[in-house]
């Protein structure tokens, strides 16, 4: 679906978080010069159209004890990567699963997924089990654990360009 300028402004305003007021959509609308009914209708349409993939509480995993945040990267040839990505995306322990370009000489990995868990050993074991179960253990892969989070916030589209 195509986004209107008003949709973009709405998503940009929402990136700051829905206000915790009694009528948060009315407050959001007022800030944008819209009315509450329009904001509610557009948010429903953006979800329906798949632009908003989920709408709700965005938690921070690390302070909730999910300190093992692993980005798993796989070196999978072009011909197999889409099929492997579709298989990985169905695994319940996998959050986010993207294909990205190889950068010869600098970066060989083409498939990225995230696995969050309460500790490293669990996540390492989960990744090994995942690779076996999905028949991906023949491909070189690495687990990049995160050791520090410097910044995490919603994308601020439509603000600084």
């Amino acid at each position: 679906m195509d986004l209107t300028a008003s949709d973009r402004a709405l998503l940009a305003a929402l990136a700051e978080g829905l206000p915790l007021s009694e009528r948060p959509y009315a407050d959001l609308a007022a800030a944008l010069g819209l009315d509450e009914a329009t904001v509610l209708a557009r948010l429903a349409a953006l979800q329906e159209g798949g632009v908003i993939r989920r709408f709700g509480v965005v938690v921070r995993h690390r302070p909730l004890g999910f300190t093992a945040n692993a980005m798993v990267v796989w070196d999978i040839p072009e011909a197999q990567v889409a099929e492997a990505g579709r298989r990985l995306a169905t695994a319940p322990e996998v959050r986010l699963c993207y294909r990205r370009p190889r950068r010869p000489g600098r970066w060989p990995y083409t498939l990225f997924c995230m696995v969050h868990g309460r500790d490293r050993d669990t996540v390492t074991a989960q990744v090994a089990a995942l690779a076996r179960r999905l028949d991906l253990d023949g491909y070189e892969h690495r687990i990049l654990f995160s050791s520090r989070c410097f910044k995490q916030c919603g994308a601020r589209y439509g603000k600084a360009a």
Binding site: L3, A15, E16, L43, L46, G50, F55, L64, Y157
Partner: peptide, 20 residues
């Protein structure tokens, strides 16, 4: 610090452009 925000997780590249 347990909640980042109440908001939308937007499908990549529909409302702009991004890279890792």
């Amino acid at each position: 610090g347990l909640i980042s925000r109440i908001g939308a997780v937007v499908r990549p590249h529909t409302a702009g452009c991004s890279t890792l």
